[in-house]
């Protein structure tokens, strides 16, 4: 029975490997989802910027929405915040487009 530490180590390694693999996969997918959402939000912001620059008048509500979206995305935000920012930017974009006819 001198080998019992081997069994113990083996079982521990297995458990750690299982926990580790779950954590790694979850972290990676979370980070990937966040990165994707942030990238989407940036694209939406850029698109909204184009609309704002093309707009002749000013739309205060759209400006406000855009600023809020910008504020969210410039901080370190998660996936949900980035999605919210993208939605705000889209709304601002639509408002400016509508104002522009």
């Amino acid at each position: 029975m001198d080998e019992w530490p081997i069994w113990l180590i083996g079982v521990l390694v297995l458990v750690i490997a299982g926990v580790g693999s779950v954590v790694v996969v979850r972290n990676r997918s979370r980070r990937a989802g966040r990165d994707e959402a942030v990238a989407g939000a940036r694209a939406a912001l850029e698109a909204a910027e184009v609309s704002r620059d093309a707009c002749h008048g000013t739309v205060p509500e759209a400006d406000q929405l855009f600023d809020r979206a910008h504020l969210i995305i410039s901080g370190s935000t998660g996936a949900s915040g980035a999605r919210q920012a993208a939605e705000l930017a889209d709304r601002a974009d639509r408002l400016w487009q509508a104002a522009n006819g």
């Binding site: 989407g40 698109a47 974009d93």
Partner: peptide, 14 residues
């Protein structure tokens, strides 16, 4: 139409 083109290009870049 320029804004639309610009927005499309922004999306394409993304």
């Amino acid at each position: 139409t320029n804004p639309r083109l610009a927005r499309g290009v922004v999306r394409l870049t993304a």
